[in-house]
């Protein structure tokens, strides 16, 4: 007997008391929790997102689409970034005003090469106001998971209001499990040393979120 059969047989024996003929539906799951907490307007939801992002030490910027290239040039310049990696599908005009080396990501780029790059700029799939979370789904303007991990500075552009949802349940409805997903709530952090929160262990130590309105 394979271990698979052994384990499954043990499970079945262990559940002799359960009336299983009717299938899993015999065990009811009440779902009377809320789809979202509060009944906010789109504008309020965006405001809540900004608040919660900032609460977990992300740096938040508001901008109209027309001002984005100038803002990105300013943010990269201010930080002194010399190079920025970008996913293949990032709109080219976003970085049109930047005076840094723009490195398009490609599958052959090694972790070591990414480690030598200062910043990364991406879009996102969805942002969650109640938790201050941005979710990346490796879409064309987000790229491979590693490019938002190895460089120390991540700028993420959220299209407001259409990419913003209020809650975790609403976010999951929009996301596909078939894509690799990264949920990001503030820069990486640890509380492992006497429970003092320290920002930035392995992921980018600086997370900037740009809320871009049309």
């Amino acid at each position: 007997m394979s271990s698979r059969d052994v384990v499954l047989a043990r499970v079945r024996r262990a559940l002799a008391d359960v009336p299983r003929a009717a299938g899993p539906e015999e065990a009811p799951v009440p779902r009377d929790y809320l789809r979202a907490h509060g009944d906010e307007s789109a504008a309020d939801t965006v405001r809540l997102l900004a608040e919660n992002l900032a609460d977990y030490r992300a740096v938040v910027h508001d901008i109209h689409a027309a001002g984005l290239p100038a803002l990105l040039a300013h943010l990269l310049g201010e930080r002194g970034s010399r190079s920025v990696v970008v996913p293949a599908g990032l709109p080219a005009e976003w970085l049109a005003k930047c005076d840094v080396e723009v490195v398009p990501d490609a599958p052959e780029r090694t972790p070591g090469e990414l480690d030598a790059i200062d910043s990364v700029v991406t879009g996102c799939a969805v942002a969650i106001a109640e938790t201050g979370t941005i979710v990346l789904d490796a879409g064309p303007d987000q790229g491979r998971r590693r490019i938002t991990l190895v460089p120390d500075h991540h700028i993420c552009v959220v299209r407001v209001p259409e990419q913003v949802v209020a809650s975790v349940p609403q976010a999951l409805e929009r996301l596909s499990p078939r894509r690799p997903l990264t949920w990001i709530s503030g820069p990486s952090a640890t509380s492992d040393i006497e429970l003092d929160r320290v920002e930035g262990v392995h992921g980018p130590r600086t997370l900037e979120v740009v809320l871009m309105t049309p």
Binding site: N52, Y56, P107, I128, E130, T131, G132, T133, A138, R144, R145, R146, V168, L172, P177, R178, R179, P180, L181, T182, W183, I184, S185, G186, P187, S188, A189, S191, G203
Partner: peptide, 29 residues
Amino acid sequence: FLQLLPRSSTAERMNPYTSMWTGTTDGDG
């Protein structure tokens, strides 16, 4: 669970990083 776990565990609205993957993805990971 993504609402129950972070608040019960680190007492955060959401933990800094959550990764989700399904099998393998070409060129990523």
